[in-house]
Computed example of a mutant assay.
Amino acid sequence: MKKILFLLLIIANAVVAQNTTELFTDANDLYKNEKIEEAIELYKKIETQGFVSSELYYNLGNCYYKLNKVGPSIYYYEKALQLNPLNEDVKNNLVFAKRLALDNIEELPKTVFQKLNKNWLQKLSYNQWAIVVVVFSFLGSLLFLLFYFADSPSKKRFYFVTSTVSFLLLIFSFFITYNQYNFTKKNKVAIVFAEKTAVRNAPTLNSEEVFTLHEGTKVIVLDRVDDWKKIKLADGKLGWIIADEIKEL
Protein backbone atom coordinates (compact mmCIF):
# COMPACT_ATOMS: atom_id res chain seq x y z
CA MET A 1 0.00 0.00 0.00
CA LYS A 2 2.81 2.39 0.91
CA LYS A 3 4.56 1.62 -2.38
CA ILE A 4 1.37 2.45 -4.31
CA LEU A 5 0.94 5.76 -2.46
CA PHE A 6 4.60 6.62 -3.06
CA LEU A 7 4.21 5.83 -6.77
CA LEU A 8 1.07 7.95 -7.00
CA LEU A 9 2.91 10.82 -5.29
CA ILE A 10 5.76 10.60 -7.80
CA ILE A 11 3.29 10.58 -10.72
CA ALA A 12 1.39 13.56 -9.28
CA ASN A 13 4.62 15.55 -8.84
CA ALA A 14 5.68 14.70 -12.40
CA VAL A 15 2.30 15.89 -13.75
CA VAL A 16 2.50 19.16 -11.78
CA ALA A 17 6.10 19.76 -12.92
CA GLN A 18 5.13 19.14 -16.55
CA ASN A 19 2.16 21.51 -16.20
CA THR A 20 4.46 24.17 -14.70
CA THR A 21 6.92 23.77 -17.56
CA GLU A 22 4.09 24.21 -20.06
CA LEU A 23 2.87 27.33 -18.24
CA PHE A 24 6.39 28.78 -18.27
CA THR A 25 6.74 28.11 -22.00
CA ASP A 26 3.32 29.64 -22.71
CA ALA A 27 4.20 32.71 -20.63
CA ASN A 28 7.48 33.13 -22.52
CA ASP A 29 5.60 32.94 -25.83
CA LEU A 30 3.12 35.59 -24.65
CA TYR A 31 6.04 37.84 -23.63
CA LYS A 32 7.66 37.43 -27.06
CA ASN A 33 4.36 38.36 -28.70
CA GLU A 34 4.14 41.54 -26.57
CA LYS A 35 1.18 40.21 -24.56
CA ILE A 36 2.85 41.33 -21.37
CA GLU A 37 -0.07 41.41 -18.94
CA GLU A 38 -1.19 37.92 -19.98
CA ALA A 39 2.37 36.68 -19.52
CA ILE A 40 2.43 38.16 -16.02
CA GLU A 41 -0.73 36.25 -15.11
CA LEU A 42 0.87 32.94 -16.09
CA TYR A 43 4.15 33.73 -14.32
CA LYS A 44 2.20 34.66 -11.17
CA LYS A 45 0.26 31.41 -11.45
CA ILE A 46 3.55 29.49 -11.41
CA GLU A 47 4.68 31.52 -8.39
CA THR A 48 1.49 30.67 -6.44
CA GLN A 49 2.17 26.99 -7.11
CA GLY A 50 5.50 27.34 -5.30
CA PHE A 51 7.74 26.70 -8.33
CA VAL A 52 9.85 29.83 -7.89
CA SER A 53 13.25 30.33 -9.50
CA SER A 54 15.65 33.08 -10.43
CA GLU A 55 14.51 32.74 -14.06
CA LEU A 56 10.84 33.15 -13.11
CA TYR A 57 11.49 36.35 -11.14
CA TYR A 58 13.81 37.61 -13.87
CA ASN A 59 11.05 37.22 -16.46
CA LEU A 60 8.53 38.93 -14.17
CA GLY A 61 10.97 41.81 -13.75
CA ASN A 62 11.30 42.08 -17.53
CA CYS A 63 7.51 42.14 -17.92
CA TYR A 64 7.05 44.99 -15.46
CA TYR A 65 10.00 46.84 -16.99
CA LYS A 66 8.22 46.65 -20.36
CA LEU A 67 5.16 48.20 -18.70
CA ASN A 68 7.32 50.97 -17.14
CA LYS A 69 6.34 49.86 -13.64
CA VAL A 70 9.49 50.73 -11.76
CA GLY A 71 8.66 49.33 -8.33
CA PRO A 72 7.57 45.83 -9.41
CA SER A 73 10.41 45.50 -11.94
CA ILE A 74 13.09 46.32 -9.35
CA TYR A 75 11.31 44.13 -6.79
CA TYR A 76 11.39 41.02 -9.00
CA TYR A 77 14.94 41.62 -10.21
CA GLU A 78 16.02 41.83 -6.57
CA LYS A 79 14.14 38.59 -5.77
CA ALA A 80 15.90 36.91 -8.71
CA LEU A 81 19.26 38.00 -7.31
CA GLN A 82 18.33 36.64 -3.88
CA LEU A 83 18.02 33.18 -5.42
CA ASN A 84 21.03 33.55 -7.71
CA PRO A 85 23.39 36.46 -6.85
CA LEU A 86 25.66 35.49 -9.77
CA ASN A 87 23.03 36.02 -12.51
CA GLU A 88 24.66 38.68 -14.71
CA ASP A 89 21.55 39.20 -16.87
CA VAL A 90 19.55 40.16 -13.80
CA LYS A 91 22.29 42.50 -12.59
CA ASN A 92 22.44 44.29 -15.94
CA ASN A 93 18.66 44.72 -16.18
CA LEU A 94 18.48 45.89 -12.58
CA VAL A 95 20.89 48.71 -13.43
CA PHE A 96 18.55 49.89 -16.21
CA ALA A 97 15.48 49.60 -13.98
CA LYS A 98 17.11 51.64 -11.20
CA ARG A 99 17.74 54.45 -13.69
CA LEU A 100 13.97 54.90 -13.89
CA ALA A 101 13.71 55.45 -10.12
CA LEU A 102 13.53 59.11 -9.07
CA ASP A 103 15.35 58.88 -5.73
CA ASN A 104 19.13 59.13 -5.88
CA ILE A 105 20.37 57.94 -2.51
CA GLU A 106 24.09 57.94 -1.81
CA GLU A 107 25.36 55.12 0.38
CA LEU A 108 27.30 55.81 3.54
CA PRO A 109 31.06 55.07 3.37
CA LYS A 110 31.73 51.41 4.13
CA THR A 111 34.41 49.84 6.27
CA VAL A 112 36.92 47.41 4.78
CA PHE A 113 34.93 44.44 6.14
CA GLN A 114 31.64 45.84 4.78
CA LYS A 115 33.22 46.27 1.35
CA LEU A 116 34.59 42.71 1.50
CA ASN A 117 31.18 41.43 2.54
CA LYS A 118 29.31 43.22 -0.25
CA ASN A 119 31.81 42.77 -3.09
CA TRP A 120 32.81 39.18 -2.39
CA LEU A 121 30.98 37.29 0.35
CA GLN A 122 27.51 38.35 -0.80
CA LYS A 123 28.24 37.06 -4.29
CA LEU A 124 26.72 33.85 -2.93
CA SER A 125 23.52 33.54 -0.92
CA TYR A 126 23.67 31.86 2.50
CA ASN A 127 22.09 28.77 0.91
CA GLN A 128 24.92 28.60 -1.61
CA TRP A 129 27.48 29.10 1.16
CA ALA A 130 25.81 26.18 2.97
CA ILE A 131 26.50 24.03 -0.09
CA VAL A 132 30.16 25.10 0.11
CA VAL A 133 30.20 23.94 3.76
CA VAL A 134 28.85 20.53 2.75
CA VAL A 135 31.44 20.21 -0.04
CA PHE A 136 34.35 21.02 2.28
CA SER A 137 33.04 18.65 4.98
CA PHE A 138 32.81 15.81 2.45
CA LEU A 139 36.22 16.64 0.97
CA GLY A 140 37.85 16.90 4.39
CA SER A 141 36.39 13.56 5.50
CA LEU A 142 37.51 11.85 2.30
CA LEU A 143 41.05 13.20 2.55
CA PHE A 144 41.26 12.16 6.21
CA LEU A 145 40.25 8.60 5.28
CA LEU A 146 42.89 8.58 2.54
CA PHE A 147 45.43 9.81 5.12
CA TYR A 148 44.40 7.02 7.52
CA PHE A 149 44.75 4.27 4.94
CA ALA A 150 47.79 5.65 3.07
CA ASP A 151 50.76 3.29 3.09
CA SER A 152 53.66 5.69 2.49
CA PRO A 153 54.90 8.66 4.58
CA SER A 154 54.78 11.05 1.61
CA LYS A 155 51.12 10.22 0.86
CA LYS A 156 50.24 10.45 4.55
CA ARG A 157 51.88 13.88 4.73
CA PHE A 158 50.05 15.09 1.61
CA TYR A 159 46.62 13.85 2.74
CA PHE A 160 47.13 15.19 6.25
CA VAL A 161 47.95 18.69 4.99
CA THR A 162 45.11 18.77 2.44
CA SER A 163 42.54 17.39 4.91
CA THR A 164 43.64 19.97 7.49
CA VAL A 165 43.26 22.76 4.93
CA SER A 166 39.82 21.42 3.97
CA PHE A 167 38.64 21.42 7.59
CA LEU A 168 39.97 24.97 8.07
CA LEU A 169 38.07 26.07 4.96
CA LEU A 170 35.03 24.23 6.31
CA ILE A 171 35.14 26.27 9.53
CA PHE A 172 35.72 29.50 7.58
CA SER A 173 32.83 28.85 5.17
CA PHE A 174 30.54 27.83 8.06
CA PHE A 175 31.33 31.14 9.78
CA ILE A 176 30.50 33.02 6.55
CA THR A 177 27.25 31.06 6.13
CA TYR A 178 26.17 31.86 9.68
CA ASN A 179 26.95 35.56 9.25
CA GLN A 180 25.23 35.79 5.87
CA TYR A 181 22.14 34.12 7.35
CA ASN A 182 22.02 36.58 10.26
CA PHE A 183 22.68 39.51 7.91
CA THR A 184 19.78 38.46 5.66
CA LYS A 185 17.38 37.98 8.58
CA LYS A 186 18.27 41.26 10.27
CA ASN A 187 18.31 43.33 7.06
CA LYS A 188 14.81 42.87 5.68
CA VAL A 189 14.91 44.60 2.33
CA ALA A 190 11.79 46.14 0.81
CA ILE A 191 10.94 48.11 -2.32
CA VAL A 192 8.69 51.18 -2.40
CA PHE A 193 5.62 50.45 -4.54
CA ALA A 194 3.77 53.74 -4.03
CA GLU A 195 4.37 56.31 -6.77
CA LYS A 196 5.11 58.89 -4.06
CA THR A 197 4.96 58.52 -0.29
CA ALA A 198 5.81 60.55 2.78
CA VAL A 199 8.14 59.18 5.44
CA ARG A 200 7.40 60.50 8.92
CA ASN A 201 9.24 60.72 12.22
CA ALA A 202 6.59 58.66 14.06
CA PRO A 203 4.04 55.98 13.10
CA THR A 204 1.08 58.40 12.88
CA LEU A 205 -0.44 60.45 10.05
CA ASN A 206 -0.24 63.70 12.04
CA SER A 207 3.51 63.33 12.75
CA GLU A 208 6.12 65.41 10.98
CA GLU A 209 7.11 64.47 7.42
CA VAL A 210 10.90 64.06 7.32
CA PHE A 211 11.41 63.15 3.65
CA THR A 212 9.65 61.79 0.56
CA LEU A 213 10.30 58.57 -1.35
CA HIS A 214 9.26 57.43 -4.81
CA GLU A 215 8.52 54.13 -6.51
CA GLY A 216 11.41 51.69 -6.85
CA THR A 217 13.54 52.87 -3.90
CA LYS A 218 15.13 50.12 -1.80
CA VAL A 219 14.79 50.40 1.99
CA ILE A 220 15.70 48.31 5.04
CA VAL A 221 12.81 47.42 7.35
CA LEU A 222 13.76 47.74 11.03
CA ASP A 223 10.48 47.51 12.91
CA ARG A 224 6.69 47.46 12.61
CA VAL A 225 3.95 49.15 14.64
CA ASP A 226 0.35 48.53 13.55
CA ASP A 227 0.11 49.65 9.91
CA TRP A 228 3.50 51.37 9.88
CA LYS A 229 7.04 50.17 9.27
CA LYS A 230 10.24 51.79 10.44
CA ILE A 231 12.73 52.00 7.58
CA LYS A 232 16.34 52.94 7.00
CA LEU A 233 17.88 54.22 3.76
CA ALA A 234 21.35 53.52 2.39
CA ASP A 235 22.40 57.05 3.44
CA GLY A 236 21.39 56.38 7.06
CA LYS A 237 18.09 58.29 7.14
CA LEU A 238 15.36 56.81 9.34
CA GLY A 239 11.60 57.17 9.32
CA TRP A 240 8.18 55.55 9.39
CA ILE A 241 6.23 54.61 6.27
CA ILE A 242 2.77 53.14 5.75
CA ALA A 243 3.29 49.37 5.53
CA ASP A 244 1.18 48.85 2.40
CA GLU A 245 3.32 51.28 0.41
CA ILE A 246 6.37 49.01 0.47
CA LYS A 247 6.80 45.33 -0.31
CA GLU A 248 9.37 43.15 1.43
CA LEU A 249 11.53 40.82 -0.63
Rank of each mutant, 00 (worst) to 15 (best):
A101N: 06
V161L: 13
L7Q: 13
L7K: 09
L7F: 09
F144G: 07
L9F: 14
L56T: 07
N59M: 10
Y64A: 04
L146M: 13
I40Q: 11
T184M: 13
F113S: 13
A202C: 11
Q122H: 12
G140M: 03
E41Q: 15
Q122R: 12
F138Y: 12
E55I: 15
Q180I: 07
V219N: 03
V199C: 00
N84G: 00
L56V: 02
L100A: 07
V112A: 12
E245C: 00
F158M: 09
K188D: 05
G140E: 02
L169D: 06
Y64S: 10
Q122V: 01
R99F: 05
Q114D: 10
N104I: 13
Y181H: 05
V134H: 07
V15T: 10
H214D: 01
A12H: 07
V112M: 09
I231S: 00
A130E: 03
I246H: 04
K69I: 01
T162D: 03
A27K: 15
S141F: 10
N127E: 11
L139P: 09
Q49W: 08
L30N: 06
E106P: 02
L145D: 12
L67K: 15
D103K: 04
I246Q: 02
I46F: 06
T20H: 07
F138A: 13
C63F: 04
T25R: 15
T111Y: 04
N62W: 03
L67P: 12
D89P: 01
Y148W: 11
K115M: 08
V161Q: 05
S207K: 05
N92V: 15
S137L: 11
H214M: 01
Y64P: 08
N92Y: 08
R224Y: 00
K196A: 08
I231A: 00
A198E: 14
C63H: 08
E22S: 10
G140W: 00
Q18W: 15
F183D: 15
F113Q: 13
Q122I: 01
L222V: 07
L168R: 04
F172C: 06
I74C: 03
A80W: 01
V135G: 04
F96Y: 13
G236W: 10
K35S: 04
V16S: 06
F6G: 04
